[in-house]
């Protein structure tokens, strides 16, 4: 008797075929999403690489990273097409008085670099994360270590949950109404810091609380049973073990802070600013100055100025650098998280 004729022989029934087809669809959906993400990132990387890298040593377009945005002048000179940034164009004009005036086309923001934007973004991220981490970690400690269930805590949790759902543009309006107008801080770093910090606060609190929860109860009880005060227990025996988790999860918060445009549009970002943030008369001015920021710069160059082949370079270049920074932050968080997970096991 042939072996294939037993009762359990697999048959290609219509149900099985349908199953195969539907599972294929699910798989296709998954890979389609990944493909879309890859296309977005790939396009920007490939086209941005042209601006950021160059064929000659040092292979990286240092001008793009170290200088401020300038207008680009394109003109014909002795039969050659010249492309010069604003400053270079002026020296060139001085040296070659025969350059026909008015014959050059100029394109705003298309030359120079994005150094002030990088600086501004870094300042915004550092300041707002400092505020958000302080507030968020302390709040998480309260919620996880001190709080006992009750109406008050339910309210706090509800507030955190709801705060997480507030659109970023509403945070922008709030920051504008409170810090810029009511406190009179104008468009400033300080206003941007607080707006971004409040926006990212729920993320930080949730991440910190999870890390604190992951610290075994035995650590606390053991410490308390040895006569440690609650404060000593938290400082010596809970926070040190939760801190790596808090920091890595918070890096995702950094990615969000760095990536948001809407909250800083009216609170901290300038379209263009000649001075760098540290070029201030007195120390306190530092906090009350607006800055340029990468995401806002992308918005400006991609929608506020006339589009042409020259602006495209700076658009893709800025987007690439921005994506690179955010991707680095995100990857760092994932790698760190995995490493710490392996190191701290209890």
């Amino acid at each position: 008797m042939p072996a294939t004729h037993h009762v359990f022989r697999a048959q290609l029934t219509s149900a099985r075929r349908r199953e195969g087809f539907i599972f294929f669809l699910f798989g296709a959906a998954t890979y389609f999403v990944l493909l879309c993400g890859a296309v977005v990132i790939g396009t920007i990387v490939v086209r941005g690489a042209g601006t950021v890298f160059q064929a000659r040593a040092p292979f990286i377009n240092t001008t793009f990273f170290t200088e401020a945005p300038e207008s680009l002048h394109v003109f014909q000179y002795q039969g050659r097409k010249m492309e010069l940034g604003d400053a270079a164009f002026r020296t060139f004009e001085a040296a070659h008085p025969d350059v026909a005036k008015g014959k050059s086309d100029s394109y705003v923001y298309s030359a120079g670099g994005i150094f002030p934007c990088i600086v501004g973004t870094v300042l915004l991220v550092v300041g707002s994360m400092a505020i958000a981490l302080t507030l968020g970690v302390c709040a998480a400690i309260y919620l996880n270590e001190y709080a006992r269930d009750g109406t008050f805590i339910r309210f706090v949790r509800l507030a955190i949950l709801n705060l997480a759902g507030v659109p970023s543009i509403v945070f922008g309006l709030f920051g504008f109404g409170m810090f810029v107008i009511f406190f009179g801080w104008n468009v400033s770093l300080l206003a941007g810091w607080f707006t971004l910090a409040f926006m990212v606060l729920p993320v930080i609190i949730t991440a910190s609380e999870e890390s604190l929860k992951a610290v075994p109860k035995g650590f606390r009880e053991g410490s308390l049973a040895l006569g440690a005060t609650k404060w000593q227990t938290i400082i010596k025996n809970v926070l040190p073990y939760a801190l790596p988790g808090i920091l890595t999860s918070s890096i995702l918060g950094i990615a969000r802070v760095a990536g948001e445009t809407a909250p800083i549009m009216f609170t901290a970002a300038y379209v263009v600013r000649d001075k760098l943030p540290w070029q201030v008369d007195k120390f306190s001015d530092f906090f009350f100055q607006g800055v340029m920021a990468l995401p806002y710069h992308i918005y400006v160059v991609s929608s506020k100025i006339p589009q042409n082949e020259y602006t495209e370079r700076v658009q893709y270049g800025t987007a690439f650098v921005f994506l690179l920074i955010v991707a680095l932050i995100a990857t760092a968080s994932i790698v760190l998280r995995n490493r710490l997970r392996n190191r701290y096991k209890w």
Binding site: V33, L34, C36, G37, V40, I41, T43, I44, L252, A255, A258, G259, E260, T261, P295, Y296, I298, Y299, S302, Q315, A319, F322, L323, V326, A327, A330
Partner: peptide, 13 residues
Amino acid sequence: FISAIPSVVLGFF
């Protein structure tokens, strides 16, 4: 990782 792409970059795309 897709969720980490900033919205302004998507808009630009």
